Amino acid sequence: MTRGIRGATTISENKADMIIENTRQLIEEMVTKNNVEPEDVSHVFISVTKDLNAAFPAKALRKLSGWTYVPVMCMAEIEVPNSLPSCIRVMMIVNTDIDQAAIQHVFHNEAVHLRPDLAGKVEKQ
């Protein structure tokens, strides 16, 4: 079964190291919370708001062991008036037996406001 795992974060400045490091932290937490192995990942989409262009956030995945062959694509987020700025969003598509309601989505920094219902979700035992 394939499932989508959402993640999002914001950064304070459009700097390459901040984009890559915050994306890495986000991906690592998504992987840890959902017991994901790179071989289980079908593909990853990463979008950024128009104010972030200093680096491709996909570079963060290339720094992770075992992620060399995982297809990753970066794209621009659509511009919606009054939407959250400086935001990096991740959609990871994985093969898993985890029930959809048990998926642990991850939101860092100001991105917790995107989906407060998912950001505060407690892991199911």
Rank of each mutant, 00 (worst) to 15 (best):
K59M: 05
L61I: 02
L84I: 06
I78G: 08
K59T: 04
L61S: 04
P71D: 07
N109R: 14
V112H: 09
E110I: 00
V72Q: 01
M73R: 11
P81K: 12
C87D: 05
L84W: 04
R62F: 10
Q100F: 07
A76M: 15
V106W: 02
S65E: 15
T96F: 01
L64D: 04
D99H: 05
P85M: 07
P81I: 04
I103E: 07
Q100N: 13
P81N: 09
P85C: 07
I93D: 00
L84F: 05
H108G: 00
L84K: 02
I88Y: 01
I103D: 08
E77M: 12
A102T: 11
M73F: 10
F107L: 06
V112S: 08
M75H: 11
E110T: 03
S83N: 14
N82W: 11
M75V: 01
L61D: 02
R89F: 02
A76Q: 15
P81W: 02
R62A: 07
E110D: 15
L64A: 03
M75Y: 12
A111H: 05
V80A: 12
P81S: 08
V90D: 00
A102S: 15
I88E: 03
K59I: 03
L64K: 01
A60E: 11
G66F: 03
I78V: 13
I78W: 06
W67C: 01
E77R: 13
V106I: 15
V106F: 06
L61N: 03
F107I: 06
M91V: 14
W67P: 00
K59H: 07
V94G: 02
V90L: 06
L64V: 03
M73A: 10
V94P: 01
L61P: 01
L61Y: 02
V94I: 15
V112K: 11
P85Y: 03
C74G: 09
Q100S: 11
V70C: 09
V112N: 10
A111N: 04
I103M: 08
M73G: 01
C74H: 08
L84Q: 05
P71V: 05
